[in-house]
Design a protein around this nucleic acid. Structure first.
Lengths: 251, 251
DNA sequence: CCAGGATTGACCATTTCTGGGCATAGCCGC
DNA sequence: GCGGCTATGCCCAGAAATGGTCAATCCTGG
């Protein structure tokens, strides 16, 4: 029962944290008790009104933290990208099962290793339209990752993310723009690669009207171009991957 | 170590399932071993258009299943709604911490109880733009919910959802085209809403060259327009939502 | 060494998109 | 009814994207 009780205990500590410092202390203790050297919790809330909030709690080496923040690597971090493709935690050495690694990605991981970060385990969580976050536990280079603790890490990470969500606050969360049915249809066909003219034919309306719908949709999301309109709709779940999937998959 | 080993064992069984029947059997066994009477796993690929876009595996009483499906209660189900607002599993008796319960919601829960479904624990998971799902474990009315097994249920549920994702079909990524680093960068900035000219300034190269990279990238994916190029890159994990996140709702 | 790919740069004609404006009609809530 | 939202249609000017061709440099694998 050792591990089980440990998980309970750590989860309890973490969920009791009501300040960032307490969360740091609890996570620090948790990482240590589970046999990890490092931890990093990142949580981002995206409010519809634009006032987002985020939290970053970690004990990564300063060298790496400075590089990461300085070069704003969070945008291209392959670990973070993999987190968008997994429903469960994953080991970093397995990221290429989730996403392809580019040269730049490998370079980033290499620099991380040189900065004192070895293998790790990341627990990702997403709330569509509201927030995304991840909680990672890692060891120093060449150290053994405590495989028997990954399930504990999964629980502890999840609890930590829930705690972070509480701390960041769900208060003024407002749903973002909603598209009308017609707008949604136009965005969908646009995402499927149709031009305004083709979409007009499909929907049986004038091309000018399709253009108008897309124009209104762009205004709702306050984006200037079609690419971003489609991405916004995708993230909001207004359209889904599977809506578009079969249009380019058959190749 | 009993619970810990049990979790490992059940997780292994479930992740080994490669058919819906095997998943049913594994979940059935898991629920039983953890002290639950009932289980239900629902997985939805966004969009719902194509075949195999969703999965439902459960051993709920027929009475309830018929009512649920017949009246299409999934749309109003408070448990499901709560699942969209939680990053971790939750007990059904705590749903009002996540969402306000309307009279209709309470009525729905009451009918469920009369149909033989007591308290339960639901593990929700979301992948932005791709899928949402939940895995619930429940007991019959007036039975004690195995509180000491909730963490195990969290793990088992997550693993079951990951398995369902594999079965439904979008789980494993297949490498189609690979973009060069430069192409990837151009696609990324394009996804962030930059025009070829702006991207050129950012990358410090000529606009013509950016256009060329995007052209080559489109050819690799055999798509005619920028929208689909970006979607393909997103599908493949070449770029991620987080890569573009902060650009499409900047201020 | 040579073939092939990656990267860079340029030009052109055509299509498409974007941001303005304008107008009619229907529907819903106050 | 009035105001607001939605849907529809049209016009225009300028910006951007697309598809095609040509050419130079650099690097890597055979």
């Amino acid at each position: 029962m050792k591990h089980f009780n440990l998980t309970e205990e750590l989860a309890h500590d973490i969920s009791g944290a009501d300040k960032e410092e307490q969360l740091f202390a609890a996570l620090s203790n948790a990482a240590d008790r589970m046999g990890f050297d490092l931890f990093a919790l990142a949580f981002d809330r995206r409010g519809g009104g634009g006032e987002g909030a985020s939290m970053l709690v970690h004990n990564y080496p300063d060298v790496w933290a400075n590089v990461y923040v300085g070069f704003d690597l969070s945008g291209t971090d392959p670990i973070r990208r993999a987190g968008e493709r997994s429903m469960t935690g994953f080991q970093w050495c397995d990221v290429d099962r989730y996403i392809p690694l580019s040269c730049g990605d490998r370079q980033l991981l290499k620099v991380a290793r040189e900065s004192g970060i070895g293998d790790g385990y990341t627990v990702p969580r997403h709330l569509p339209g509201e927030a995304s976050g991840s909680c990672s536990f890692a060891v120093v280079p060449n150290a053994r990752i405590p495989l028997e603790m990954l399930h504990a890490a999964e629980i502890v990470g999840a609890v930590a993310l829930a705690a972070a969500r509480q701390l960041v606050g769900t208060g003024s969360y407002t749903r973002r723009a909603v598209l009308t049915e017609r707008q949604r249809e136009c965005v969908l066909w646009s995402a499927r690669g149709k031009t305004a003219g083709e979409t007009a034919g499909i929907l049986g309306i004038s091309e000018e009207t399709v253009v108008r719908h897309l124009k209104m949709a762009r205004e709702r999301y306050s984006v200037p171009c079609r690419q971003m309109l489609i991405l916004c709709a995708l993230f909001d779940g207004v359209i889904g991957f599977s809506d578009v999937y079969d249009w380019w998959r058959p190749l």
